[in-house]
Amino acid sequence: MGSALVVAVLKYGLLALLWVFVLLAFRTIRADFSGKSPAVPTPVASTATKSVKQPKPQRRKGVPRRLVVTEGSLQGTTLTLGDAPVTLGRAHDSTLVLTDDYASNKHARLVPTADGWTLEDLGSTNGTYCDTGRGSAKVTRPTAVPAGSVIRIGKTVLELRS
């Protein structure tokens, strides 16, 4: 029965092709995802001896050269760090004017020092939080911030990158 064979082939072929379509769609999505990831290279310095120890917070971290806003309304903004101090806040004369309801007018300041940058809170209402690799902590006194540190002000998150 040629006709029965044709019908059977069509039936299973159709089902198989339906799933091929679904799988191809998933493949497209996967490719899309891998292309989408920001792909921030995390330079794992191979200086330390590959010992059994857990990777402890590296002492020698690079001097940050850029300040990147990673979350909040200014997301995507990049600021190049030069020699001048950087003020953060809602005030219009700040170096980085934050449009964040939870930030104070003069919220915080980044000051260049001999071996890197230092973060200071300027008496803000909601505080400045900083994670230099040992967990997030409220900034109560000038803190040295190596590259890779994450600063949170209100809903804005900034990252120092080398």
């Binding site: 019908v7 069509l10 159709l14 379509f21 191809l24 490719a31």
Partner: peptide, 23 residues
């Protein structure tokens, strides 16, 4: 990729139509 998937979708629909006609 969108174009390729659309072509496949049309092929699938046509195949379904043929199956209905034959049966």
């Amino acid at each position: 990729a969108e174009l390729a998937l659309l072509v496949l979708a049309v092929v699938l629909a046509a195949l379904g139509y043929t199956a209905v006609q034959i049966s």
